[in-house]
């Protein structure tokens, strides 16, 4: 399979990438926990965490992309995004997950679970967004 698509994902998903939390602590991307995101958002002056529930996953074995539909925030706003199948999302209590965890592990070395309908992903919004 072509690997060119991997170039479209940012480098910080590569296993071993160093991530700085809001309190200054450094962690490897594969070691991040749900609490790291929650605590960083609490410290942040302009960002807050939203819960985004996966409602639909559309993809195929022949496509590099998947269409994900989320219900975002307390209003459960419907948001659809097209992503590379290897794009990881952080799921509450579950960790890194993607539509094709085998591909994510192969390309980035990042241990991943299968992203499924019902999973609640961490997403961000602006605190001052009215």
């Amino acid at each position: 399979p072509p690997v060119a698509a991997s170039n479209q994902l940012p480098p910080y998903f590569m296993k071993g990438s160093i991530i700085q939390l809001a309190n200054g602590e450094l962690k490897r991307v594969e070691d991040l926990k749900t609490e790291d995101f929650i605590q960083s958002a609490e410290i942040s002056s302009d960002l807050k965490i939203d819960s985004s529930t996966v409602e639909r996953v559309e993809g195929s074995h022949t496509s590099s992309f998947a269409l994900l539909q989320f219900a975002v925030g307390e209003h459960r706003t419907q948001v659809s995004v097209e992503v590379l199948v290897e794009h990881p999302f952080f799921v509450f209590g579950k960790g890194w997950s993607s539509c094709c965890p085998e591909r994510t592990s192969q390309l980035f070395g990042l241990p991943c679970s299968k992203l499924s309908v019902g999973d609640v992903c961490i997403s961000l919004t602006l605190k001052n967004l009215k």
């Binding site: 940012p10 480098p11 910080y12 998903f13 990438s17 160093i18 991530i19 700085q20 939390l21 809001a22 450094l26 991307v29 991040l32 790291d36 995101f37 960083s40 942040s44 960002l47 965490i49 939203d50 985004s52 989320f70 975002v72 925030g73 209003h75 706003t77 948001v79 995004v81 999302f89 952080f90 992903c121 961490i122 997403s123 961000l124 919004t125 967004l129 009215k130």
Partner: peptide, 25 residues
């Protein structure tokens, strides 16, 4: 002399998507 290579450090929020659309008032 071998200069030490700097290791990139990424902020935590780069890993998290912004999914919330603008909320109407």
């Amino acid at each position: 002399n071998v200069e030490p290579r700097s290791v990139p450090v990424f902020p935590w929020h780069s890993l998290v998507p912004f999914l919330a659309p603008s909320q109407p008032d």
